[in-house]
C-alpha cells in the first residue's frame, strides 16, 4: 500500500504546519489517480465474474428501460402534450372565430350607425330645406303683400297728390283773384291768370 503511506506522511506533516494543509492535500490528490492505477482498479478486476456479469445485467436492464419508455413512458408524455397542443389550438381557433364574429358585429354596428347618421342628416336637410322654402314663401308672400300695400299707398298718394294739385290750381287761382281784386280793385283776366299760375306751377314741378 504505497499510496496510503504517502498520505499518512502528508497528514503527519499537517500536524506540524497546518498552513501547508491545502497544498499538501492538493499534491496528495494529484498523486491519487496514478496511485490508483498502480494499485489496480476494481473496475478492471476480471478475476471476479461480477465485472462482466454487471454488463450483461446492465444490458438487460437498459433494454427493458428502453422498451418500457418507448412503448409506454414517452407516449404517455407525448399524448398529454398533444392533448394540450390540440386544446390550445382549438381554443385559439375559437377565440379567432369569436374575434371574427365580434369584428363582423362591430362592422355591422358601424354600418348601421353610419346609415342612421346619413338618414338623420337627410331628414335634417329635408326639414331645413322645407323650412327654408316655407320661410322664403312666407317672406315672398309678405313682400308681395307689402309691395301691394306700398303700391296701393303710392297710388293713393299719387291720387291724393293729383287731387291736391288740381285743388292747388283752383286754390291758387281763387287766392290770386282775391289778392289781385283786393289790391287793384278789379278782377284779373281769367285767361292770363290761369296761364301765369300754370307756368308758376310748372316752374315748381307741380301740375
Amino acid at each position: 500500500m504505497l499510496c496510503s503511506k504517502k498520505v499518512q506522511a502528508r497528514s503527519a506533516g499537517t500536524m506540524k504546519l497546518s498552513r501547508w494543509t491545502i497544498p499538501l492535500l492538493g499534491t496528495g490528490l494529484s498523486m491519487l489517480p496514478v496511485a490508483a492505477m498502480a494499485e489496480g482498479m476494481p473496475q478492471l478486476d476480471f478475476s471476479t465474474p461480477l465485472t462482466t456479469s454487471q454488463v450483461v445485467w446492465g444490458a438487460i436492464i437498459f433494454a427493458l428501460l428502453y422498451w418500457i419508455l418507448s412503448r409506454a413512458g414517452l407516449p404517455l408524455v407525448a399524448s398529454v402534450l398533444e392533448e394540450r397542443g390540440t386544446k390550445i389550438a382549438r381554443d385559439l381557433d375559437e377565440a379567432r372565430a369569436a374575434k371574427a364574429s365580434a369584428d363582423a358585429g362591430m362592422a355591422e354596428a358601424d354600418q348601421a350607425t353610419a346609415k342612421a347618421r346619413a338618414e338623420a342628416q337627410a331628414a335634417i336637410n329635408a326639414a331645413l330645406d322645407e323650412a327654408k322654402k316655407k320661410a322664403a314663401e312666407q317672406a315672398e308672400a309678405l313682400n308681395a303683400r307689402l309691395e301691394k300695400r306700398l303700391q296701393d299707398s303710392e297710388a293713393q298718394i299719387a291720387q291724393a297728390r293729383v287731387s291736391a294739385m288740381s285743388a292747388l290750381r283752383q286754390v291758387a287761382t281763387e287766392t290770386a283773384t282775391t289778392v289781385v281784386t283786393r289790391l287793384t280793385g278789379t278782377a284779373p283776366d281769367a285767361g292770363r291768370l290761369d296761364t301765369a299760375i300754370g307756368s308758376a306751377l310748372a316752374a315748381r314741378g307741380i301740375g
Binding site: 491519487l32 494499485e39 465485472t51
Partner: peptide
C-alpha cells in the same frame, strides 16, 4: 479510495 468500486 478504490474499495468503493468493488462489486458485490
Amino acid at each position: 479510495a478504490l474499495g468503493q468500486f468493488q462489486l458485490h
